[in-house]
């Protein structure tokens, strides 16, 4: 379906794209970009694999298979960061450390709770984009397989299957 060049390019790009996503995610608080952008970039990296190698690739890549679950893991993470302060009698979204208090650094990464929240956003966006595109890809693949099987069983089948498709 796609040329070898596309396949090689997409494979070569996979890790660098992840790298960019990670950088954008970590640097979110000091530079352009945030969890949302990082999530879209990372998911584009995965979707590129599917485009180059076909829908089967989505079944092979564990990152793609478990993407829908990542959505809900991300939601759980973001919600707990947002609402955890209630348990301590604080208003929601009171991030730690509080305004003005010193924060630990690791390079440009700051250990503050907004970053956790951003990771939650990242997971949701990543899970949604990869999850829905791969779901569509696998569904169309399943339909094609059904058509082939129908064609295999009887010579009249292709047109019948085509009609059914049309009705849908």
């Amino acid at each position: 379906m796609t040329s070898v060049m596309t396949q090689i390019a997409s494979r070569i790009l996979l890790l660098p794209l992840f790298m960019v996503a990670a950088a954008i995610l970590v640097k979110g608080y000091v530079d352009i970009g945030d969890g949302f952008s990082a999530g879209v970039i990372a998911s584009l990296a995965i979707i590129l694999q599917g485009v180059a190698f076909g829908a089967e690739e989505f079944d092979r890549l564990p990152l793609a298979r478990y993407a829908p679950l990542a959505t809900f893991a991300g939601l759980a993470l973001a919600l707990s960061v947002a609402f955890a302060p209630i348990a301590f009698g604080h208003p929601i979204f009171l991030h730690q450390p509080v305004a003005g208090a010193p924060a630990r650094h690791f390079g440009s990464l700051e250990f503050i709770t907004p970053v956790l929240f951003d990771i939650g956003v990242f997971l949701i966006v990543f899970g949604f984009c990869v999850g829905s595109v791969s779901a569509v890809a696998r569904e169309t693949q399943r339909r094609e397989r059904e058509l082939e099987e129908a064609a295999h069983e009887s010579p009249r089948a292709p047109s019948a299957a085509g009609d059914r498709e049309g009705v849908r």
């Binding site: 979110g28 608080y29 000091v30 530079d31 947002a82 450390p97 951003d118």
Partner: peptide
């Protein structure tokens, strides 16, 4: 709020409830 990029800080902190 420990940030330099205002857009991210708005999304994750000031208007975090909208983001949720």
């Amino acid at each position: 709020a420990h940030g330099e990029a205002i857009v991210t800080v708005i999304l994750a902190d000031f208007r975090g409830f909208d983001t949720i």
